[in-house]
Amino acid sequence: MQEQVKQVAAQETVIYKKRRQLPDIWHRFCKNKRAVCGLVIMILIVLAGIFAPVICQYDPIQQNLREAYQTPSLAHWFGTDSIGRDLFTRVVYGIRTSLLCGIIAVTISLVIGGTLGAIAGYYGGKVDNVIMRFMDILLAIPSLLLAISMVAALGGGMINMLFAIGFSSMPTYCRTLRGEILKIRKTDFVEAAKAAGAKDSWIIIKHIIPNCLAPIIVRVTMGVASAILFCASLSFIGLGIAPPTPEWGQMLSFGRDFIRTYPHMSTFPGLAIMVTVFSLNMMGDGLRDALDPKMKT
């Protein structure tokens, strides 16, 4: 009897543990098979990009006309292109270019667009109106056309292209962040914190930022995918990354001339784009569900 009492007492003493949300989020993420699949593919892709020199035995830029126009074989897994470069090597090295472009372009649009959106959402009124009308103007122009015209005006090259992509995809980030902040600013828990005597800085750091982080992470994941597509599209029409550097879009356009006779030349870079974008989007979808604490575990 006494032991029982002791046991009950032992159960009742609960110690406060800082409960991190990460394990919960990870648990929810793992439940989504597609998302995990996307994550695994992305990890493989990133690893391949990092260890490209180890994986590939050829040089991505060196021409070798004796080996030109080869179809896929054991020596050249993805075949070779019209000037004898190994396509597998180029696709693997292309990961570096594409991911880097995607990440930098998204960072640019997130920093500019996000800051503007946050300002618009937090201050409201006239500032909000001016910023959002400007974003509406940007939205009214098809973003690819905007990027093309910007690159045409600024001149080609990687940095100009990244700025063009970043600038033209800015409105989405601006709108997302503004919407989130507007929503959170009006919630009762912000009001409750204010009533408890919290300063603005406390409310921003403790409540507003953590609560808009989730949609931003989701946007960024999907944004990287679309920036990679953008980058490939611009390179395809010759406005992006200059030829010797391996880049998927540019490889696609290079292989376009031989598409009837040697379809592998454009198939593999195309597949690489597709797989990357696809797995990033799957990951983003899974993240959206996982980051919402209200979703049932």
Binding site: Q21, F189, E191, A192, A196, G197
Partner: peptide
Amino acid sequence: REFRKKIQIVFQDPYASLDSRF
């Protein structure tokens, strides 16, 4: 801010008045 200690509020909707990340 100091004076806020003396007056507090309890809101109508307990679903909205707690931060879901806390």
